[in-house]
Design a protein around this nucleic acid. Structure first.
Lengths: 145, 145
DNA sequence: CAATATAATTTAGACTTCTTAACTATTTAG
DNA sequence: CTAAATAGTTAAGAAGTCTAAATTATATTG
């Protein structure tokens, strides 16, 4: 078991992909004028779907006051909408605006822009085998907590 | 070409691995009491090896004044050492202390802690095929800029 | 209905991070 | 040797982010 190169190889790959992906993402953040905090919040809101202020705070690890203040800025920048929940008027429903979605997608695309270059370095055969392998990983990965 | 599922599958996998890796890393950051800025700086210092203050600032996208101030804190926390370069006494050589290295390694380990769980979900056969595929990806990935 | 709980916000204050500008020390170029 | 360039630090101030506490509005419970 300790000789199985699977996990070590996976770690190597994650090291590589993190290095390029984060570099591109940080570059995008600077270009777009958004802080990592803001982009992180946008990502969490996307992940959570429609949700309340406190819930976002919990995911970000901050108080609801801090979440409320951060959302102020994001609403002001037109990236997030904040509307009253008709079922419980204490709650605000938070979600991404079209522009917020656009920024999120642009960030993800920037993060992944190095993959086309990588693809060019591989033969059809290699790509087929790698695709099959990754499909297994994706499927099993999505089954984890 | 547009039908080649290679890049889309790779993107799916990066989506999955980023989600788990970042979640674990953020959790580690909170537990260790270090900000993402500090951990980011530590990572950059590690990547650059021995380097000067301005160089770190450039990599982080901030002025040398900001880099100097951030390094103050990291030195004070015992994570970074800052010594005069004997060849050019204007320059300070920056590097990680043993404790800084330890924190970095702990962060990387935390980031990757979900991979053992993933490995358990795969057969030996699957792991062999995936390992072979990833070795190709790592090799080609390291050839990119 | 009255008391309590919950969701969000506002306020005040602490702390961090960043920038620009001024400054020190050292090196390089003319 | 002097002048200019470079590396880093320091200082002052702007802006962001966080918390605790107080506040408002709404919902739930007894």
């Amino acid at each position: 078991m300790s000789l199985d190169p699977f996990v070590p190889t996976l770690k190597e790959w994650i090291e590589v992909s993190m290095r390029y992906s984060m570099r591109n993402f940080l570059h995008f953040a600077r270009e777009s004028g958004l802080s990592m905090s803001h982009l992180g919040a946008i990502y969490h809101i996307h992940q959570l779907g429609s949700c309340g202020v406190t819930e976002i705070g919990e995911h970000l690890g901050v108080t609801s006051a801090a979440a409320s203040q951060m959302l102020d800025r994001l609403v002001q920048q037109g990236l997030v909408h904040r509307t009253e929940d008709p079922d419980d008027r204490r709650v605000k429903q938070i979600g991404l605006t079209v522009e917020g979605q656009r920024i999120l997608n642009a960030g993800i695309q920037a993060r992944e822009s190095w993959l086309d270059q990588l693809a060019e370095k591989l033969s059809s055969d290699e790509k087929d085998r790698i695709t099959a392998a990754l499909q297994v990983l994706v499927a099993k990965g999505n089954q984890l907590g």
